[in-house]
Simulated scan of single mutants.
Amino acid sequence: MTVHLKHVAIASADPDNAAKFFVEVLGWTIAGRVDSRNALGYYVTDGTINIALLNFKNRPAAGMEFPEGYTGLHHLGFQCEDIEDIVDRFENSGFAPRHDVNIAQGLGMNPAKDNAEYKMTGPEGVMIDVSERGWVGTATYKAKTA
Rank of each mutant, 00 (worst) to 15 (best):
V34M: 13
D14P: 07
K57Y: 10
T48H: 13
R98N: 09
R98V: 03
N115L: 10
K57H: 12
L54R: 07
M64V: 13
N17K: 15
H7C: 04
R37V: 10
I51N: 00
G108Q: 05
V25P: 02
V87F: 01
A13L: 13
L26Y: 11
T48S: 11
F78K: 03
D16W: 00
E84A: 11
R89S: 09
I49E: 01
H4V: 09
R133S: 09
D85K: 12
Q105P: 02
I83V: 08
E81G: 15
A11Q: 04
H75Q: 05
N115E: 05
E24M: 12
I83A: 04
G77I: 03
T29P: 02
A31E: 05
H75R: 06
A11K: 11
D100E: 15
V3N: 05
Y141W: 12
P15K: 13
M109L: 01
E132Q: 13
K119E: 01
T145V: 14
Q79L: 06
A13H: 11
G106V: 11
D88M: 02
I86D: 06
V25A: 14
A9Y: 01
M1G: 13
W28P: 03
K57L: 15
V34H: 09
G47F: 12
A31F: 00
P97R: 12
R37W: 05
N58G: 07
Q105E: 02
Y43K: 10
L53R: 05
L73G: 01
H4E: 12
M1V: 08
Y141M: 06
N115D: 12
L107Y: 14
N92Y: 06
V44I: 14
L26R: 06
E91S: 13
V8H: 04
N115M: 07
A112Y: 13
G27E: 14
T138N: 10
E81Q: 15
A11E: 02
A18V: 09
L107C: 07
F78V: 08
L40C: 04
F66W: 05
S36N: 08
F22N: 09
E84W: 00
M64A: 15
Q105K: 06
Y141F: 15
P60H: 06
F21V: 14
E117H: 07
E132W: 02
P111E: 01
L107F: 14
A96W: 01
F56N: 03
L5G: 09
R37N: 11
F66A: 07
D129A: 08
I128R: 00
E65V: 13
A143C: 08
P111Q: 04
V101S: 07
F22H: 13
G47H: 14
M1T: 08
A139P: 12
Y118P: 02
L5V: 10
S12P: 03
L76F: 15
A62M: 15
T138M: 09
H74T: 07
V130Q: 03
M127C: 10
E132R: 01
T2D: 06
G108H: 02
M120D: 00
G27R: 15
E91I: 15
A139L: 12
R33G: 02
E91Q: 14
L5P: 07
D100I: 10
I30N: 00
G63A: 14
V25G: 01
L107E: 00
T2Q: 12
E65K: 15
R59A: 13
N58I: 05
V136S: 04
P123K: 11
L107G: 03
G137Y: 10
L76Y: 14
A61Y: 08
